[in-house]
């Protein structure tokens, strides 16, 4: 039996948008390479994360797998089924949850929504009913099951959206930003559910919350501009950039960057202004060793006063920054 649940081979997607004049005459063609030859295999029972900023290609990849977008080239198989040639079987083998509360019917109740979609997953009425009760029970929504979705809170709707993806108990789950916009309690609930109750599933998850990827994923693919920039477990990725520490200093007034850069051992020094404060980031091989030098220097410089200071170990965001020169949450 195949141990790989999701196989992505050289998958590319190019969008061509044509700007038209007078309805039909094309004047300008723009090409956007949303995915550039992505290859990724996800073994059964693993949670893989796609981490990247908006527009990196995460959602396009998920949509290609979900048969919503046709790839320009390459192949992908879900649970052994080719998403192009055996798309019905592929769809039947995966649950797709797009983190969009609009993806269910607001005019129907939670129960009616689940039963409706269960029938699209080929279940007869009685089975669909049982399944709805079971899923709504797991989500803690049984009491609200007969209230119209439009009257529920955002978090509850997202739980229904999530439950909908689990209706047919699919071996593979594609979760596109499942916790986006959720309040922290609901997000934590959902993450816990993913970790504890979906152990046997193969999951591909996109997110731009680093701590979520860190917490949930066995392996992470950092994706930017349609390419996988780096791949590995969260630990492995962070080890990659462990070759330096970063010192974060918040000051009132602007410190002299030139002087700081001259300090022996400083690899880089940059500052940004936020809310009237300067936020200075200094990287160095050993941040603990260097910190007092930097602080002293700022102290002597009359124009800036230190408000806050910390030495940070690398986060996934730093990994991303190092690889691409941009931050994930930009």
């Amino acid at each position: 039996m195949n141990k790989i649940a999701v196989e992505i081979q050289d998958l590319s997607k190019t969008f061509i948008s044509v700007k038209k004049k007078a309805v039909i005459i094309p004047v300008e063609k723009t090409r956007v390479d949303a995915l550039k030859s992505i290859t990724l295999d996800i073994p059964k029972g693993q949670i893989y994360g796609l981490l990247g900023p908006n527009g990196a290609g995460k959602t396009t990849l998920i949509k290609c797998l979900a048969t919503l977008v046709l790839p320009t080239s390459g192949t992908a198989r879900v649970h052994g089924y080719d998403v192009l040639k055996e798309s019905t079987y592929a769809r039947a083998s995966m649950g797709v949850c797009q983190g969009n509360e609009r993806s269910i019917y607001w005019k129907l109740t939670a129960r009616e929504n689940i039963i409706f979609f269960a029938k699209l997953y080929r279940m007869p009425q009685n089975e669909a009913k049982e399944r709805a009760d079971e899923l709504l029970g797991q989500m803690g929504l049984l009491e609200k099951a007969d209230i119209k979705t439009e009257e529920l809170s955002h978090g509850m709707r997202m739980k229904i959206v999530f439950a909908r993806a689990l209706i047919h108990d699919p071996p593979v789950l594609l979760l596109d930003e499942p916790t986006q916009g959720l309040d922290p309690t609901f997000a934590t609930d959902l993450r816990q559910y993913i970790r504890n109750s979906l152990k046997s599933k193969t999951i591909l998850l996109t997110t731009h919350y680093m701590h979520e990827a860190d917490l949930l994923c066995d392996k992470i693919a950092l994706i930017n501009e349609g390419e996988i920039k780096s791949f590995g477990s969260p630990q492995e990725l962070k080890e990659d950039v462990r070759d330096y520490d970063s010192i974060h200093i918040k000051t009132k007034g602007d410190p002299d960057l030139g002087l700081i850069r001259e300090i022996d051992g400083v690899m880089s020094a940059n500052s940004t202004t936020r809310n009237g404060y300067s936020e200075l980031v200094v990287t160095a091989k050993d941040g603990y060793d260097l910190a007092h030098h930097v602080l002293n220097l700022i102290h002597q410089d009359q124009s800036a006063r230190v408000e806050h200071f910390e030495i940070k170990e690398p986060s996934l965001d730093d990994v991303f920054l190092k690889l691409t020169g941009r931050r994930i949450e930009d």
Binding site: A66, T67, R91, Q98, N100, S103, Y105
Partner: peptide
């Protein structure tokens, strides 16, 4: 318009 088209398209119905 209501946002459910893609969801319908991910189900295994034709």
């Amino acid at each position: 318009n209501v946002g459910t088209l893609e969801t319908l398209m991910t189900t295994p119905i034709r």
